[in-house]
């Protein structure tokens, strides 16, 4: 880790001013990505502006049935909040399936959305990586790519977006609120995460110094009946191979409303709109779920090592939707079945 200077910000505008005016400054919140990658020398800011004292940590339900979360609220606090658990089970489950209890106590909501990919070639400062050093090439394309993406990839990058939280937020049509040198902005979550294309180093539309201040989740009819299903090798403390955030409302045996997003398989938290479009109005049964999953994964572009993810994603989508219609427990990710 290079030497750094440290500035503890006391007000939000001052923090934004400090980072905006200095291209070598980064924000420091929970530190779980920043400090890790500083030590790896993947990130090399000259100055860290500590924003942990800023008043951005509230969690509150809105009268309309939605949710407002401050960017500095910790993952564990949000997951434990009664309003979150009641109105948006998918959000609480996504948060609690991520990382470990210690990391969830540290990591902020804003930082979670900006966490960097787990691609070992990105983390290893010695390997070519277009995301870390644009133009150097993608080592994963011909490398060890079992965990990499099959959707939203490009010839320049196939790193998987690692966040569980973001998958749930994308499914819930959340908005990301920011404050930048040019004022406040709000981005639909689905537009906040950029496909790698030919510029994989650009992961979000924010300009330098723009700070996530909060997340807004609108009231959503099917959200109370929602879940997050995460499939991984280890029973805990591992990033997803495939995950599904799903919310569903069924009226008279037909799908009235559905929200579906995928994690672990795409370069961004992947809103499964094709599957949703297929499902609305369709019978809420296994056949329709299977067809919807097939439609969603039709354009997948796997490598030989991660080809299994296409089928695994289909099956996980079906399992998630079946579980929501059947009211059964279906969580292979945690613990042993009993």
């Amino acid at each position: 880790m290079r030497t750094i200077t440290y500035l503890r910000a006391t007000d939000t505008a001052g923090a934004v001013e400090a980072v905006s005016s200095d291209p070598t400054s980064d924000y420091l919140a929970g530190g779980t990505t920043e400090v890790d990658l500083l030590r790896q020398e993947v990130l090399n800011p000259r100055r860290l502006v500590d924003i942990n004292d800023l008043p951005l940590n509230g969690i509150e339900g809105t009268p309309e049935g939605g949710l407002r979360i401050g960017a500095l609220a910790r993952m564990s606090e949000v997951a434990a909040h009664p309003v979150v658990r009641e109105r948006f089970p998918v959000l609480a489950q996504a948060l609690e399936s991520g990382a470990s209890p210690q990391l969830r106590n540290m990591a902020s909501m804003g930082g979670n959305l900006l966490q960097r990919v787990r691609c070992s070639y990105f983390r290893d400062a010695e390997s070519p990586c277009n995301k870390r050093e644009p133009g150097t090439g993608c080592s994963a394309l011909a490398g060890f790519s079992r965990g990499h993406a099959v959707l939203g990839t490009s010839e320049h990058c196939i790193a998987t977006h690692p966040s569980d939280l973001a998958v749930a937020l994308v499914a819930l049509d959340a908005h990301v609120r920011t404050l930048g040198p040019r004022g406040e902005r709000a981005y639909p979550a689905d537009e906040f995460f950029l496909l790698p294309g030919d510029s994989p180093h650009r992961e979000h539309p924010m300009e330098h110094g723009e700070l996530i201040t909060g997340i807004e989740v609108p009231a959503t009819d099917p959200a109370r009946r929602s879940l997050y299903l995460k499939v991984r090798d280890r029973a805990s403390y591992e990033f997803a191979l495939v995950s599904v955030a799903a919310a569903l409302s069924v009226v008279d045996g037909s799908v009235a409303d559905v929200r579906l997003a995928l994690g672990g398989v795409a370069t961004t938290p992947w809103r499964a709109r094709r599957a949703e479009d297929f499902l609305v109005g369709a019978a809420a049964d296994a056949d329709a779920f299977g067809m919807a999953a097939r439609v969603e994964m039709a354009d997948a572009q796997p490598t030989p090592m991660n080809a299994f993810k296409v089928e695994l994603a289909r099956r996980t989508i079906v399992r998630a939707l079946r579980t929501l219609t059947g009211g059964r427990e279906a969580d292979p990710g945690t613990g042993s079945p009993t």
């Binding site: 440290y6 420091l28 530190g31 779980t32 400090v35 860290l48 210690q102 990391l103 540290m106």
Partner: peptide, 13 residues
């Protein structure tokens, strides 16, 4: 009072 990882925490914070 909350459990955290000392390796990813800068002392100055």
């Amino acid at each position: 009072g909350r459990r955290a990882l000392a390796c990813l925490t800068l002392a100055v914070t």
